[in-house]
Design a protein around this nucleic acid. Structure first.
Lengths: 341, 341
DNA sequence: TTCTTACATGTAAGCGCATACATTTTGATT
DNA sequence: AATCAAAATGTATGCGCTTACATGTAAGAA
């Protein structure tokens, strides 16, 4: 099927040199006279030679490729993260190969294996679902196994281990502060909505609980303020509507989708936003401004985290034996809009 | 870096057979006795052998991989399409490698080259920006060049050529019908909002113009109803607000993002939706239901198109010499919500 | 001029696999 | 037991490239 017949031997013959020389000019080796380099480049320019990556890979065992694993690319947060990562990796001459793992462990393991089998130079896991609940269960064993082969980077996740590096958002703090500011504005009944038990979701929950306790709520009461929902606008709305004794004047959601479900709930209840109820989302995605009223949201600086992650990958891949810290934190920023006072 | 030292020779030695036999059991060849197959499989199970894809690829010149090119993965439509494609390709044993081309020609060419250099078995271009305006300009020359190497499939685009296959939505018809239904409901001034000159955008414009002409509007008047905007909620809103003599009671947008911009405009103007103004979006994405009021949108059956595309790819890749039609059309469906009566 | 060096280029080995072809084994048939 | 076809297995080659090492060459030193 593939007909790029022209190989290094063709170029060598056509330019009257050996394949070693061709290889040298292709790889920018400095041990080539300017004259022959030009000669070879001319031929290449004429016939359009591209090295066969398989052959290169076979020898070098690398393809200048990094694998990116996401639970699902059909998600605002994931797809924008992938876009940032890709942009950045390209700058450094690396291509990326994408894996959609789904949320179940088997899918994650399988896709990790798939990516590794492509001889990626590094693996990036996007999203905290890859970090389990932060404890070292066997649910993250496959990550540690992968790290035996290539450096593994986790965006907003936290898995300990040799050769594993994490970039995390300061979610706990962000939610704590968001909740605290609501409390300061006199809100009495704040609930926290989430669809997940992931590492990141847990941090957010902790932030919420800490804020609640800080104003004297009992531990149980704080915990009861956490409501688990599905990650779907209408189902969030319906679930809240179905809760007859739900009485709240403040909602913090673990993502914007859920926050919008909350907005729909408030609207259906005939409440005024933000007078009767304040709502804060998370991720500061396009969804947040697509809603009316536009949703106040916590920005977790995805672009910055992605750039930073790629920088760190390059530090390792470029052979730098310089020790990298295994975990860096990036603060979040609250973007105030119409759903808060 | 990569330490998967165990290769086919190791397995052969450990199981007391030749590498040819190991290769045969790996590839499920039937010319292996049950006894030796089991013997080899046992060893493999024990030491965990995975064939080196480079070596495989070098010989076979294929890696069971298809390339997917999108202008940007950070877009609802693109990312969901990629998700569908990936899911479907996996089922057939193909992995996918993603390229983010950006919207400029150079990026498209470069990324196409990158994907081809990875020895993909087929190339999928997602989105009509790859089809230019439908005319055969040199802006699509690189696609025809790629098609000389592998079969190229375009999702919602239209480029003619050997080895190029397209799946298109019936956008013209969908917009025509949407506009016509608005007209039937007595709307007098309908405008069409778009951010693009792509093949798909042009079809939509044509549908709009045809509908306008069908109720006696002059060609010029129909054309003047087309307003070019940026693909950004707030900028759409602001641009419309800035048009002092804009007087319309119906808006059709070429995607949901723009439609929501229109909603924001109407809201800012204090209009009642849908009484004073009807708005229809396109793609039926999550954005459409995240807005309040929820936006009526045209669903272009992305999932169906993607599945269908993969089916056709497989027909070709599985060596079927069966002739495929170079273009198939899929109808769209209007999903009525709160922005239409 | 002759020897030395540094630099430029060429030669050949191997990376791990699939597979055409060669060889051996099996088992059925006589 | 002898024969032969079919089935199972092995041998050896090539896929296109990088690179250590070998060889060649030109410039400078003696």
């Amino acid at each position: 099927m593939n007909k790029d017949a022209v190989n290094i031997y063709d170029i060598a013959r056509m330019s009257g040199v050996s394949i070693a020389t061709v290889s040298r000019v292709m790889n920018g080796s400095e041990k080539v006279s300017e004259k022959t380099r030009k000669k070879v480049m001319d031929v290449i320019g004429k016939v359009g030679y591209t090295p066969n990556v398989f052959a290169q890979g076979l020898g070098l065992n690398t393809m200048h490729t990094v694998g990116i694993l996401v639970p699902t690319i059909a998600d605002q947060y994931m797809s924008s993260a992938v876009a940032y990562l890709e942009t950045e990796l390209i700058k450094h001459g690396y291509d990326c190969i994408l894996g959609n793992s789904g949320f179940d462990l088997e899918g994650k393991q399988k896709k990790t294996e798939m990516l590794l089998s492509k001889h990626i130079d590094s693996l990036i896991l996007v999203g905290s679902t890859y970090a389990g609940d932060g404890s070292d269960t066997n649910a993250t064993e496959y990550i540690r196994a992968a790290a035996k082969r290539v450096p593994v980077f986790i965006i907003n996740g936290n898995v300990n281990g040799e050769n594993i590096y994490a970039s995390v958002c300061e979610d706990e703090k962000a939610v704590y502060e968001a909740a605290t500011s609501m409390l300061r504005r006199g809100r009495k009944n704040i609930v926290f909505l989430t669809d997940s038990h992931s590492y990141s979701a847990n941090k957010k929950k902790n932030g919420y609980e800490r804020a609640m306790k800080s104003v004297g709520k009992a531990a149980k009461e704080a915990k009861d303020g956490i409501i688990y929902v599905e990650n779907h606008i209408h189902r969030v709305r319906d679930q809240l509507l179905a809760m007859e004794n739900l009485k709240c004047d403040g909602i913090i959601a673990s993502n914007d989708m859920i926050a919008i479900g909350a907005v729909k709930y408030a609207l259906a209840k005939g409440m005024d936003i933000p007078e009767d109820i304040e709502i804060i989302g998370y991720n500061n995605s396009t969804l947040a401004i697509s809603c009316a009223p536009e949703v106040t949201s916590i920005d977790n600086h995805t672009e910055e985290i992605c750039k930073d992650t790629v920088d760190r990958i390059m530090k390792i891949l470029d052979g730098g034996e310089e020790k990298l810290s295994h975990k860096i934190s990036v603060p979040c920023t609250l973007i105030a809009r119409e759903t808060t006072m």
